[in-house]
Design a protein around this nucleic acid. Structure first.
Ligand SMILES: [Mn+2]
Ligand SMILES: [Mn+2]
Ligand SMILES: [Zn+2]
Ligand SMILES: [Zn+2]
Lengths: 149, 149
DNA sequence: AATCTAATGCAAATATGTTGCATTAAAGCT
DNA sequence: AGCTTTAATGCAACATATTTGCATTAGATT
């Protein structure tokens, strides 16, 4: 997803030490074109490095807290994580396929949310708007159609 | 939330037998002004009736499947459940307070999503659009301000 | 090099949701 | 009313995701 982001830099700008494992987690998330669960991130890293499950969770919490990544609720039981919006990556909605469980990034224009208007009517601080569309993806539709015949 | 809905009727219209426990679950959800987790529903019911945790989960699955209730991802680890949109209850976004964990129903107009436009650009079947706003609620803001002094 | 601290690891606990099979309730028949 | 059948519910065990507490380690600082 991102080869323009300097992760070391991002970390340091947020006041976080740029440790190898934090970088690894950020890279896995940034390289993927859709958000990943803690488990997926852990398994991906485990193929190449040594890292503990709990460390992954803690790094994720930290990165979310500092706003480097977003914790997104896929339609399923676990959270997924993607790069937070920045100059290179505008905020965007996601599509969750109830059939195959995939979560797909949609393009940013596909759904425009007027945060300004929102903030005006709402008596609290808005940090984030999450839009998720649920349904059945193109692939699954095709598969279903075929299996009927 | 709803004293206009005839739950027995809703159940039967969906081809579900209107059992006492199903009614109880629907009532708890319908009476609450914000969506509830399976655990909350179970605990509420347990105060008055006898019911098993698993039964609650199964009833919830069923009601979601039949479209009587919506499974909503609050900002936290568990799903929450609210009445599905119908004549009495238009679809609406929710606000999740990161500080106190409350999930609040927002009024329907506060965020308008053009599902038609969405469906035109998206190559799959859209069943549902979920909008969640994250931030800090009015109450928590006040508390925070006070505790600073 | 010795010291200190934050990062990581490991084991165990907790929270949430699911499965398989036993029991019960209640609807439909006779 | 009794008998039969089936769907609903209960119970125990399992599965998965996440969190916690405390031990160890690596790296920065002196
Ligand atoms: Mn995305
Ligand atoms: Mn609601
Ligand atoms: Zn799919
Ligand atoms: Zn709050």
């Amino acid at each position: 997803m991102c080869h323009q982001c300097d992760y070391t830099n991002l970390l340091e700008e947020s006041g976080l030490e740029s440790t190898p494992k934090r970088l690894q987690v950020l890279e896995v998330i940034g390289d993927n074109n859709s958000p990943l669960s803690a488990r997926q991130i852990f398994e991906t890293l485990s193929r190449t490095y040594n890292i503990n499950r709990v460390t992954v969770y803690r790094i994720l919490d930290l990165l979310v807290e500092k706003g480097l990544i977003d914790r997104i609720s896929g339609g399923s039981r676990s959270f997924v994580y993607g790069l937070a919006p920045n100059e290179n990556h505008p905020a965007h909605p996601h599509f969750y396929c109830k059939s195959c469980g995939n979560l797909e990034c949609l393009n940013p224009q596909s759904l425009n949310v007027d945060m300004q208007a929102m903030q005006r009517t709402f008596p609290g601080v808005i940090e984030n708007v999450e839009v998720r569309i649920d349904g059945v993806c193109k692939n699954c539709l095709r598969t279903e159609r075929n299996s009927v015949h």
